[in-house]
Design a protein around this nucleic acid. Structure first.
Lengths: 363, 363
DNA sequence: TGATCGGCTTGGAACGATCCAATCGTTGGT
DNA sequence: ACCAACGATTGGATCGTTCCAAGCCGATCA
């Protein structure tokens, strides 16, 4: 349930009592309660009921009590469509549904965002788009026809034109992901990837590792460069060497090859990886040469996917619930007070390392 | 955000072209076009415009043309909230967002459903619920306040009380998943698990395997029993023995143990598994004893998850796009013509085996 | 020619909420 | 005791669409 208000509903206690399978009364018979019917019952006017709900300070306590009772008895709930027609607010947030790469990250974000939005009286409405241009085209429809109040964007990248369009259309938005170029005139929430790899690196240093390599994606990826930077800074801070990083795209075969090359050339006693999939490549390469992850070479991944838990891989976990609830907060605040657009908030949240066998053996 | 893609900038083609970043006109100045403004422009009445859109056969061709032109010029789009207020139809479908088990199944279904619904002029709205009772409680809010037209349920199970409640409340629904007990007075779409394991079994028979075992979940799981039945039927049809099935919950360690036991006692030359995770247990057990999957023992999984593709595991894939589009069709048809509730459609779609190395070597 | 019929078209009412201006009832000041 | 000021409450208008019953018009038929 969503509402924080005193809604009765009841319906719970009573046993099914046999007979037709509805503890729920078929509301078809009873017409839906409206402001007027509540007002009639409480012996006040329509507007007073509305005030009780929206501007309680205008109503005398005694009156408010009577009205609340009537609301509860009738099971009244304001009708969104009517509110929306009058106020031009839908309390609907748009979210583009992505085919995630199998890491449950988007899934979990989606779940958390739905809950966080719910707490604020908003709902998440989905849309799809083949690419950014299609998404930009979809905004017209989403705004004009469905009247969404705001948008949550999830995969920012350099040269992202979406936020500029949204700003131009006056549609509030937040991004999960920082803007990777200058255009940051919108609020955003992101996870500090560099802090994550840095924490992983420090953990390895603390475990006695001295030759810590990095396996990342090809240079030029914003997210990837960020994660690399964290490792580089941490090894430098520890006074350790920073061997040339390995590079691979996110593909099992390719990752395995890159891991092999890295093990051969660098001969590290630990590898920090930019993703769990890359880390799996390292684990596989280690197994193939009869070496044991966590004992011979420590390995860490990134994103704390199911696979990581499955194979005992230490991994950096993103605080997705927090990200989602901040996204919900920022975008709804912007909806409810557009002046905030002038001073957008930016949040960089710290991830946290989940330690498993792959990094906890003796050095 | 996280994104596993190493996205190089690209920056696409078009230069920002300088100037303010909006090809979009700020509609703030021009008030939103309404039926009335379109009517004025076309020189007809409000209702005629509405008829052009909703009941075109009532309007003379020439008039319709004029009206259409006016609609196009003004960029008019009917306002959902107003329509909804009048017609009591929101064109919103509710879907409970689940924390899936890491197999991308729910993700892909979600994406496909959003697209399929879109094609029919509907949108998917998300909600969460801790358990079925909470979900049932949420219906009141979703229906009464958000006015959703229908619900798509995704994880049916024996003793599922949700559909009965929805029927009682008169809220249309479809389930992805057949009802596992008698109460099937609602349309549903499901994937024929038995057909899937049967196909996998026949494939193994065709590849020369003669001692085909089954590794499933503990008895009593509806989905699991179904998948087992397909295997049992197929081995029987081939005149092969049906060894006692192995049983394990969906846990890596446990699956490995069960696989070991199965290999020891049954000594099969092929194993059909009820899930990819169980199949991974078999693969792991094989590797540990120096035997090669696909050559010594053929293995198939179920669900065609990423992991299956990753390790070259043959797996039964569900036709999720089709499931989603049928779900969308069934629920929207029900919304638009409630009489169909008397004769609910039921669809059992056949999955398809994706053959990989784990089952394609010589017997 | 005038009444009848059907096809299009029309304006008014309704959906259920909020905004607004006006009203009512108290209280306080003089 | 009267008026002003203020707080609480009221009825009417409004958002943009669809439903409804009535109206207009030209064509058909007696």
């Amino acid at each position: 349930m969503t509402d924080a208000r005193p809604d009765v509903d009841a319906g719970t206690a009573g046993p099914p009592a046999g007979g037709p399978p509805d503890g729920v009364r078929p509301d078809v018979t009873h017409p839906r309660p409206t402001l007027d019917s509540v007002a009639a019952r409480a012996g006040v006017s329509r507007q007073t009921v509305s005030n009780v709900l929206n501007l309680p300070h205008l109503v005398r306590a005694e009156t408010a009590r009577r009205v609340s009772a009537a609301i509860a008895e009738l099971g009244y709930r304001p009708h969104r469509a009517a509110q929306q027609l009058r106020t031009r607010r839908s309390r609907l947030l748009g979210l583009r549904v992505e085919l995630s790469a199998g890491d449950k990250v988007f899934d979990r974000f989606l779940h958390a965002l739905t809950e966080a939005a719910d707490l604020r009286g908003y709902r998440v409405m989905l849309y799809t788009a083949g690419d950014d241009e299609a998404e930009i085209a979809a905004y017209t429809e989403l705004r004009g026809r469905w009247d969404i109040d705001g948008v949550v964007l999830t995969t920012t990248h350099p040269g992202d034109r979406r936020t500029a369009h949204l700003a131009g259309a006056g549609l509030p938005c937040v991004t999960f992901g920082r803007p990777w170029d200058d255009s940051d005139h919108h609020p955003w929430v992101d996870v500090d990837g560099a802090a994550g790899t840095a924490e992983a690196t420090r953990h390895l240093v603390g475990a006695g590792r001295r030759r810590i390599a990095f396996l990342g994606w090809p240079a030029g990826s914003a997210v990837g460069d960020d994660r690399l930077a964290g490792w580089a800074a941490a090894v430098a801070a520890a006074g350790l060497p920073a061997p040339e990083p390995g590079r691979s795209v996110n593909d099992p075969q390719e990752a395995r090859r890159a891991a092999d090359a890295l093990l051969d050339t660098v001969r590290p006693d630990a590898v920090v990886c930019a993703s769990d999939l890359l880390a799996l490549g390292v684990l596989s390469a280690l197994t193939a040469r009869g070496r044991i992850a966590g004992r011979d070479v420590a390995v860490t991944g990134f994103d704390d996917t199911d696979i990581a838990a499955l194979v005992g891989l230490s991994s950096v976990a993103q605080p997705l619930s927090e990200v989602a609830s901040e996204c919900a907060r920022l975008v709804t605040e912007l909806v409810e007070d557009p002046r905030r657009a002038d001073t957008p908030e930016r949040l960089l949240l710290a991830p946290r390392l989940v330690v498993r066998d792959s990094s906890s053996g003796p050095p």
